[in-house]
Computed example of a mutant assay.
Amino acid sequence: MSVVVEQYNPEWPQHFERIKSTLKLFLSEVDVLSIEHVGSTSVPGLAAKPIIDIDIIVTKENLDDAVSALVRHGEFTYLGELGIVDRHALRDPDQRPPRNIYVCVDGAFQTRNHLSVRDTLRSNPELRDEYGQIKLQLAALDLNIVDYIDAKSSIIQKILTKAGLLATEELAAIHAVNKKGHRQGAIKTNRLVLREFVMKDVAPFHALESIPEVVRYQTFEPRTLEQAKEEVVKIIQNSCVTPRAHFELAVVHEGNFIGRVGALLKRTDEHGEALNLPHANLWFSFIPESHGKGFATEAMRAFIPVLPSPNILEIECDPRNTGSWKMAERLGFKKVSLTEKAYECKGEWVDSLVYQKTVWVSADL
């Protein structure tokens, strides 16, 4: 999903006012300090992604009440802090127009960050135009949102330094948040794009994981739409945890979601002792229409180098799941164990087949 940046639209403040009116109804029983239009759409004359960013500013004591009110009255989806302390993201089910809603703690440096950027750009046309030009140039490069945010972190630092309202350590913290870290930009192969999950993936993820054939050898039944949404939220939340342990990317072919690849990285044993090498348990699932075309192998070859190395890669599966163990063999994994009746799954005892491969520097696949 490439970032789209548009020239300033004078309707954006009007959109904000309408959304604000609805938010005030949902929050009528909560002591809210202010509801602020932030982000680039709040700066007259600035090119921006056509997404209305809104900060609902509350005291720490009223944070939970504000979040609960939006979930209860507005059926918002709570996404958590997403790696940014005291800024809580929620997904508004009404995305006409698209919007980002945050409940922010008053006085927190991330709250001051949003307000400082907005106010500085409103009062400094030269800096506003420089920022807008950079945004348009980056959008022309066909970047996804992770790479886009990373690429404009330097100009954001320039704006914040000009504002002069944040301490040096706060500027450093904001710079670290804007750098992508373990979050992945678009990974492109000959036929595929691998990228981080977004909330728009709920429907295609449900379409995938609700197919009995796809989950035949999983410990869970076909997922409901609500379960799919909960899983996508967890994937998004886990992508922001540092150090990252849960890596999971959507796989896209010709603009369509066709599957997912993932890994859970273990750095300690069951006693909390550090492992000699981290252990990465891998998984993948793809829509049946994509089977037999090499998409899963192509995706896994691109995905594995994303994982921190050195590590021990592992694919564990029911031996009847020929797709999994044949994938392991194509990737150069070696069979290390076969345990009969290892665990009970969906009312039957199943065997466990384990393949492993050690990666020291970079994956040679």
Rank of each mutant, 00 (worst) to 15 (best):
S34K: 12
L82A: 11
K152M: 07
A302N: 02
V3K: 06
R87C: 13
V146E: 05
A186R: 15
E29Y: 00
A140N: 12
R267G: 03
G294V: 11
V202S: 03
V3S: 01
L192I: 09
D201M: 10
K158W: 09
L265W: 12
K341W: 00
N311F: 08
E231A: 12
A342S: 07
L194F: 07
E209I: 11
E196S: 03
K341N: 11
Q110G: 00
I149F: 14
F220K: 15
A47F: 07
D364P: 06
Q7N: 15
L171M: 10
H246K: 10
H73E: 13
E340F: 12
I52M: 05
L79D: 06
P305C: 02
R112M: 12
I156D: 11
L127T: 08
V85C: 02
D269Q: 12
D201C: 12
K357P: 03
N238T: 12
P204A: 00
D364L: 14
A151F: 05
R320T: 12
P93L: 02
D147S: 09
S40W: 08
R244D: 07
V30N: 01
H206K: 08
G332M: 03
G80M: 01
K49W: 02
H253K: 15
K135V: 01
N276R: 14
D65I: 04
K152R: 09
